[in-house]
């Protein structure tokens, strides 16, 4: 597993990534199956989003505060802010056409 940009955040990052990966591996295929109708999709999504919060929410808060500090120390917060203003990307972009 890769490192964090700040060595002090690496243990938290690894714990968070492991938590996300194991959740995601259980999430993906049933999510595809649950997309048959919009009601099963939203029921499944809501339940799994909650589960993710329960499982990984705590380590995420710890890791996030560590990495936010590291981002700021390297002056990346301003660059990120600028990039977000230019291109917020809050919605999925249209997939590129061949």
């Amino acid at each position: 597993m890769s490192q964090s940009l700040s060595p002090e955040c690496t243990p938290l990052k690894k714990e968070y990534d492991s938590c996300f990966n194991s959740w995601f591996e259980g999430y993906l295929e049933p999510a595809v199956a649950a997309s048959a109708s919009s009601s099963t999709r939203s029921a499944y999504s809501e339940r799994k989003a909650e589960e993710f919060q329960q499982k990984c929410g705590k380590i995420w808060e710890q890791y996030k505060s560590c990495v936010q500090r590291a981002v700021k120390e390297r002056g990346l917060d301003k660059l990120l802010q600028q990039a977000r203003e230019e291109n917020p990307l809050v919605e999925p972009p249209t997939p590129p056409v061949k």
């Binding site: 940009l5 939203s42 499944y44 999504s45 809501e46 993710f52 995420w60 981002v71």
Partner: peptide, 13 residues
Amino acid sequence: IDTIDRSIDPQTG
């Protein structure tokens, strides 16, 4: 690699 933000849409998944 660092994750700085992540969200799961409870409607769309």
